[in-house]
Computed example of a mutant assay.
Amino acid sequence: MSSPTAERLLEAGREELRAVGAQTLTIRTVAQRAGLSPATAYTYLASKNRLYAELFWRFLLEDADAEPADADAVSRVQSVTRRLGERLAGAPELAAAVTPALLGADPEVDELRLRIGAELLRRFRVALGDDAEPDVLETLALAFSGALLQAGMGLMTYAEMADRLDAVVAVVMRGAAA
């Protein structure tokens, strides 16, 4: 999605999400905010889940170049999970909307789900370094995904998620070193 119309819709979707929340937002209200017809909006966004996943993808890309500079792998991975957790805490409406969107079976989200997962894996791989063990990488990705789910379910806040993942990362990395 990279046309002027798509960009207008995504910006309108971001604004509408902030203004009314995920439960109230509709593609029609996004179209209205963008000054477009609903038919045009549905050409680009077949579902709210697609909108939420697209907004989350762009949210991830906003700081995709931020690489952890800490000396040791544990601190680098913790900085990745902390940064993502803190950024999500600053965008609670997006965080709340994207969790069910990514968990659902909406085919409109399939490609984005894969891109998002690949981007998270890339960040962990960069933090771990060139000698990253595949099992450690997968464990970290699963732990992060589980924490996202728990935060999305309201079992913890996104700020708490960042704190709790510090301990999880330390345990995983300690186990990998053994």
Results as ranks from 00 to 15, higher is better:
Pro4Met: 07
Pro4Cys: 02
Ala6Gly: 12
Ala6Gln: 08
Leu10Gly: 02
Gly13Asp: 02
Arg14Met: 00
Arg14Thr: 07
Glu15Ala: 15
Leu17Gly: 00
Leu17Ala: 01
Arg18Pro: 00
Ala19Arg: 15
Gly21Cys: 03
Gly21Ala: 05
Ala22Trp: 03
Thr26Glu: 06
Thr26Ala: 04
Ile27Phe: 02
Arg28Trp: 03
Val30Gly: 04
Ala34Ile: 04
Ala34Asp: 07
Leu36Phe: 01
Leu36Ser: 06
Leu36Glu: 11
Ser37Pro: 02
Ser37Phe: 03
Ser37Thr: 15
Ser37Gly: 14
Pro38Asp: 11
Pro38Asn: 11
Pro38Tyr: 04
Thr40Phe: 07
Thr40His: 04
Tyr42Ile: 07
Leu45His: 07
Ala46Gln: 15
Lys48Phe: 08
Arg50Phe: 06
Leu51Phe: 03
Tyr52Val: 05
Tyr52Lys: 03
Ala53Phe: 08
Glu54Gln: 13
Phe56Asp: 08
Arg58Gln: 14
Phe59Thr: 08
Leu60Tyr: 09
Ala64Cys: 03
Ala69Pro: 00
Ala69Asn: 05
Asp70Thr: 10
Ala71Asp: 14
Asp72Leu: 04
Ser75Asp: 12
Arg76Ala: 09
Gly85Asn: 04
Arg87Pro: 07
Leu88Asn: 05
Ala91Thr: 11
Ala91Val: 00
Ala91His: 13
Glu93Leu: 10
Ala97Phe: 01
Pro100Phe: 12
Pro100Ser: 08
Ala101Thr: 11
Leu103Asp: 10
Pro107Met: 07
Val109His: 12
Val109Lys: 09
Val109Met: 12
Leu114Gln: 15
Leu114Thr: 14
Leu114Ile: 14
Arg115Pro: 01
Leu120His: 11
Leu121Tyr: 10
Arg122Lys: 08
Phe124Asn: 05
Val126Asp: 02
Val126Gln: 10
Ala127His: 01
Leu128His: 04
Asp131Leu: 07
Asp131Arg: 11
Ala132Trp: 06
Val136Glu: 10
Glu138Thr: 12
Ala141Lys: 06
Ala141Gln: 13
Leu142His: 12
Leu142Glu: 13
Phe144Tyr: 14
Ala147Met: 07
Ala147Gly: 11
Leu148Glu: 09
Leu148Gly: 12
Leu149His: 14
Gly152Leu: 03
Gly154Asp: 08
Leu155Tyr: 12
Met156Pro: 01
Tyr158Phe: 14
Ala159Thr: 10
Glu160Ala: 14
Met161Trp: 03
Met161Tyr: 02
Ala162Val: 01
Arg164Lys: 13
Ala167Tyr: 12
Val169Lys: 03
Ala170Trp: 10
Val171Ala: 14
Val171His: 10
